[in-house]
Simulated assay, not measured.
Amino acid sequence: MTKSLPLRGRNFRWGERTYVMGVLNVTPDSFSDGGKFVTVDAAIAQAIQMVRSGVDIIDIGGESAKPGAIPVDEATELARVIPVIESIRQHPDLQSTTISIDTTKASVARSAIAAGADLVNDVSGGQFDDEMFATVARLGVPYVMMHMRGTPATMQQMTDYDDVVGEIIAYFETQIDRAVKSGIDRAKIILDPGIGFAKQYQQSIEIIRHLDRFESLDLPLLVGVSRKSFIGKILNQPDPERRLWGTSAACCAAIAKGADILRVHDVAEMVDVSRVADVMFRN
């Protein structure tokens, strides 16, 4: 699969290299970096650092999706993300940066795109808001569709799979069909198998080992392993910020199995991992 997706004046050419999406959580309660970037100044400083490190997309989120996270209302989420998006668009060093809005709410997606975001990253895959697919279709922007079961509060009690990869593929087939029937251009859909979302330790590993099975869907694949709990279990490391080398290994494995985008916290390091892994595993 070598197809291109134009975004903010550049072409993302799937299959030719790995793209890096940097996480910018403007939340007080995200699992790894909650509270670090809640002010606009701190968020902009982090965005500048990520751009200098070679990031391809900055993913801005105003609501945590960690296990057990407490939902926030629309007004709170908008108050967190819109000033940051607007400030990035006004900053001379960041104006050309591709921005993703990490939200499950159609209204937040709509406002974020109006403020200058370029694509929508929905961890619910269109399950939480019946208006999401129609909204994305009207906006005409790319859409990251993630797999999960339940909500952040309940998802870790919903991990019973007979064939975790096969069931995720079946889910995607259903949701892609729904999205396309709602008017979303299939060529603008990106898939995320949702590592750690309603997945146990061994299931997350199984997904990474068999990412190549998703090739049957013929869509680009985003993988988010950064600092996640399965890495902590392997390393016996409870502190997410001390899982850098484990994250590097997992990212390298994901690239070897066909990941197109890596969603990461440690941008500079994972840009290096991607460059070397691309030489090793891509034509």
Score class of each variant (00 low, 15 high):
residue 184 I to A: 01
residue 248 S to R: 13
residue 8 R to W: 06
residue 24 L to W: 01
residue 281 F to P: 02
residue 102 D to T: 04
residue 262 L to D: 08
residue 135 T to H: 06
residue 51 V to H: 14
residue 14 W to K: 02
residue 30 S to I: 07
residue 97 T to S: 14
residue 204 S to W: 07
residue 82 I to P: 00
residue 178 R to S: 11
residue 100 S to V: 09
residue 270 M to E: 15
residue 210 H to T: 12
residue 46 Q to V: 00
residue 282 R to T: 12
residue 40 V to G: 02
residue 193 P to H: 01
residue 121 N to A: 04
residue 237 Q to H: 06
residue 56 D to T: 04
residue 207 I to K: 05
residue 26 V to Y: 00
residue 208 I to F: 13
residue 142 P to K: 02
residue 41 D to T: 14
residue 153 A to C: 14
residue 206 E to G: 10
residue 46 Q to T: 05
residue 134 A to F: 15
residue 205 I to L: 14
residue 222 L to K: 06
residue 188 K to V: 07
residue 253 A to Y: 04
residue 48 I to H: 04
residue 253 A to K: 11
residue 183 G to Y: 07
residue 89 R to M: 03
residue 92 P to D: 11
residue 249 A to L: 13
residue 81 V to P: 04
residue 58 I to S: 03
residue 166 G to E: 02
residue 237 Q to G: 08
residue 248 S to A: 15
residue 55 V to E: 05
residue 71 P to K: 10
residue 217 L to V: 11
residue 220 P to K: 02
residue 217 L to R: 07
residue 224 G to F: 08
residue 195 I to S: 02
residue 251 C to I: 13
residue 246 G to F: 09
residue 164 V to G: 03
residue 271 V to I: 11
residue 275 R to V: 06
residue 52 R to I: 11
residue 51 V to L: 13
residue 279 V to Y: 15
residue 6 P to V: 11
residue 6 P to T: 10
residue 118 D to M: 08
residue 22 G to P: 10
residue 199 K to T: 10
residue 189 I to M: 06
residue 144 V to P: 05
residue 103 T to Q: 12
residue 178 R to A: 14
residue 135 T to S: 09
residue 276 V to C: 10
residue 211 L to H: 05
residue 107 S to R: 15
residue 253 A to T: 14
residue 172 F to I: 04
residue 111 S to M: 15
residue 205 I to Q: 12
residue 189 I to Y: 04
residue 190 I to E: 07
residue 215 E to D: 15
residue 226 S to R: 00
residue 168 I to N: 04
residue 59 D to N: 06
residue 273 V to Q: 10
residue 194 G to D: 03
residue 12 F to G: 04
residue 5 L to S: 02
residue 208 I to N: 07
residue 1 M to R: 13
residue 221 L to N: 02
residue 249 A to S: 13
residue 216 S to A: 14
residue 44 I to E: 10
residue 208 I to H: 05
residue 20 V to Q: 13
residue 29 D to M: 08
residue 201 Y to D: 14
residue 73 D to I: 12
residue 87 S to D: 12
residue 115 A to Q: 08
residue 30 S to G: 00
residue 119 L to Q: 05
residue 68 G to M: 09
residue 130 D to A: 15
residue 281 F to K: 08
residue 189 I to H: 03
residue 43 A to G: 02
residue 118 D to C: 14
residue 234 I to E: 06
residue 138 R to A: 13
residue 239 D to W: 13
residue 149 R to H: 01
residue 58 I to M: 07
residue 112 A to S: 11
residue 29 D to Q: 02
residue 101 I to K: 08
residue 229 S to L: 12
residue 159 T to K: 12
residue 234 I to K: 07
residue 247 T to A: 00
residue 256 A to T: 03
residue 146 M to Y: 05
residue 118 D to F: 03
